[in-house]
């Protein structure tokens, strides 16, 4: 089974997670830029973060045989902080980079005028750079937030079929599907969706344009939720082709709209084998040449 997690914040995860994800079948991830739990206070914090998403994190992922791409944006929450909004001026030079496969996460948090401005500006940036957009739907007042999101998308230069609306659930899936957007579902241990509800939605609405993600981050979350959904799909009578469609082909098709998706992790992994993350191979396993010691 091959799995593409189209929304996961690996910067917040450990190498144990990468190892478990690889064992579960994850071979590709997209990491959207988001807020860090602790508010940023300047654009420079964003730039260092973007650089990490374009440098260190794909390097780390490659150690574990996983292709890593990212989406870059000013996130909705920090769009409300005037200390952060100047990062919008720096985004154009980042959106041309090879590993950037969408603009995101953008969208609404509290549905403020500042969020309106940032969402519209970044949908325009996506259109200007030939990129699709990953649009987060708000946690609070979700249905109203989805409607306002879709209105702004329709008014933008970006066609709706180049937009992935994420964090959908039973209350928002129908209107999102009717809009023609791609449909993202985040499966969490306690909040957002769970595996059983996800399978019910797939049964009711079909697998077309549906993407399932773990959205795992620094909060309570589980980077193996994609595999758990796949397993439950099979147990509930979906075919292996259905699973492959939802958990691999759909995310490949959506992010492939960028023309920048490169899933051939083998093309680079030979160069990453002697890495500085393993911090010494276990003594009962073959050691990498020059078995690396701690280099933090």
């Amino acid at each position: 089974m091959r799995i593409f997690d189209p929304h996961i914040h690996m910067t917040s995860r450990t190498t144990d997670d990468y190892e478990a994800m690889y064992a579960a079948g994850v071979r590709a991830v997209v990491e959207p830029s988001f807020w860090l739990g602790q508010p940023r206070t300047s654009p420079a914090s964003f730039l260092d973060y973007f650089d990490a998403l374009l440098g260190w994190e794909p390097f780390r992922a490659a150690q574990y045989g996983i292709a890593h791409h990212c989406t870059l944006a000013l996130n909705p929450k920090e769009a409300n902080d005037p200390r952060c909004t100047p990062v919008l001026d720096a985004l154009p030079r980042y959106l041309v980079k090879d590993n950037v496969v969408a603009v995101g996460e953008i969208g609404y948090d509290s549905m403020t005028p500042a969020e309106d401005t940032a969402l519209a500006a970044q949908l325009q940036l996506a259109a200007d750079h030939g990129l699709p957009a990953l649009v987060h739907t708000p946690h609070r007042d979700k249905l109203a937030g989805l409607r306002r999101t879709l209105d702004v998308v329709r008014e933008s230069a970006l066609p709706t079929d180049r937009v992935l609306v994420d964090h959908l659930n039973e209350t928002t899936v129908k209107e999102a599907k009717d809009s023609g957007a791609w449909l993202g579902f985040s499966v969490y241990p306690d909040t957002k969706m769970d595996e059983e509800r996800m399978v019910s939605i797939l049964r009711a609405y079909g697998p077309e344009q549906v993407l399932v993600n773990s959205a795992a981050d620094w909060g309570r979350s589980d980077p193996l939720k994609t595999r758990k959904v796949a397993d439950l799909m099979l147990a509930e009578g979906f075919t292996e082709d259905d699973v492959d469609r939802v958990l691999w082909r759909n995310p490949v098709a959506f992010y492939g709209l960028s023309g920048r998706l490169n899933l051939d992790v083998d093309a680079t992994d030979a160069t990453h084998e002697g890495n500085s993350i393993l911090r010494g191979a276990p003594r009962d396993e073959p050691q990498p040449a020059g078995a690396p010691a701690t280099e933090a």
């Binding site: 002697g274 073959p286 990498p288 020059g290 078995a291």
Partner: peptide
């Protein structure tokens, strides 16, 4: 599990 991308130590192994 075994680590998927670690090469055994051999004199020839160019690891980067």
């Amino acid at each position: 599990m075994t680590r998927p991308h670690v090469t055994p130590a051999t004199p020839e192994a160019d690891t980067t």
